[in-house]
Write a protein that binds this DNA or RNA. Structure first.
Length: 318
DNA sequence: ACCTGTCAAGTCTGG
DNA sequence: CCAGACTTGACAGGT
């Protein structure tokens, strides 16, 4: 089985290469005239897309196949004030360049909306904003020319004091989404509301692939063994032709177990790999650490030092 | 060059 | 009912 390592959004291997540059509304308002404001936003988005392409090129050089785009590629585009901005058209060349590179090098990319995108909110305004945000993510991926293999990772959302109802509401609100959004969504277990076992059941019901977050599972669970969950998690990916995705991070310390550490605890990663090894399924290991791709490189070295067979910096064969 | 308060967006807890 | 925590990255203004 193959284990491919990937990382999220920002690189520390390149200088001045933020793909998430933004501008606050307050500062944008200092620019007079709608057209000038849109011009500024467009310039920032172009810079973000150029830097994203630089990151992908560096990844290609290092043979890192797995990467998550930042959600901040196009600043403020879902703000009510800029609802009519046709960013995909204005940025079509830049978006397509990114998508073409991804396809040319057979990379697997994804997106993960921020924590205020809550498909299960009982508040219609929050739901509406969440749908608009999902639409934005979908628009961008479509403009890149990436098909529904390029997934959008979501959490279930809040508990709202009624966890069962909150789960049900996710289901019904999910089912009402347009197909082009629905077909991209994968759901991840979180560390305060919904366990891996609950998300697994949800994913089976709505026929969406499940992203397994190992650290979240360690923080929030009801004693389920990973080895019991794993085959069923893999089954949710069966029709996609994609390797199941696992999120990997380590707690900063005992006081802040939910806070992401700078690097990945290789022993925890190895324990997990040993548990899933008998099932012999390829996975994508998405590293969520403060030190971003530097954490990937360190984990890679640590795995190599523990005797795992390496095929390039970011691929291991078990 | 470095430090600090602020930022569009939500939820949850504790007072 | 409201303030603060949670948590994340980056801007922008100040030194």
């Amino acid at each position: 089985m193959k284990v491919r390592l990937g990382f999220v959004a920002m690189t520390l291997r390149l200088e001045n290469c933020s793909p998430s540059k933004t501008i606050t509304l307050k500062n944008l308002e200092k620019i007079s005239g709608y057209e000038h404001r849109i011009g500024r936003l467009t310039a920032i988005a172009k810079e973000n897309l150029e830097n994203t392409l630089r990151i992908l090129r560096a990844n290609q050089y290092d043979r890192i196949q797995v990467y998550r785009f930042t959600s901040k590629l196009i600043p403020l585009c879902t703000h009510p004030q800029f609802r009519t901005w046709n960013y995909c058209e204005v940025l079509s060349r830049e978006l397509k360049a990114v998508g073409d590179f991804v396809k040319e090098h057979k990379m697997r990319v994804s997106m993960h909306p921020d924590h205020f995108t809550l498909l299960n909110s009982p508040n219609p305004d929050v739901l509406q904003a969440s749908i608009l945000d999902l639409e934005y993510h979908t628009n961008v991926l479509e403009a890149m020319g990436l098909d529904t293999d390029t997934k959008i990772v979501l959490h279930v959302g809040g508990k709202y004091n009624q966890r069962v109802e909150a789960l049900e509401r996710f289901k019904s609100q999910f089912l009402h989404l347009p197909e082009r959004i629905k077909s991209r969504i994968t759901v991840e277990n979180d560390d305060r509301s919904f366990t891996a076992a609950e998300v697994l059941k949800l994913c089976k019901d709505i026929k969406a692939p499940m992203v397994f977050d190992l650290h979240h599972h360690q923080v929030l669970h009801q004693g389920e063994d990973v080895s019991d969950l794993w085959p069923e998690i893999c089954a949710t990916w069966e029709n996609t032709g994609l390797p199941p995705k696992v999120h990997l991070s380590s707690p900063r310390d005992d006081q802040n177990p939910r806070y992401h550490a700078d690097f990945i605890d290789a022993d925890a990663a190895v324990d997990f790999l040993n548990i899933i090894r008998p099932f012999d399924k390829d996975i994508d290991f998405m590293i969520e650490a403060k030190q971003k791709d530097m954490a990937l490189i360190r984990l890679s070295q640590d795995l190599k030092a523990r005797g795992f067979t390496m095929n390039g910096l970011a691929e291991f064969i078990l």
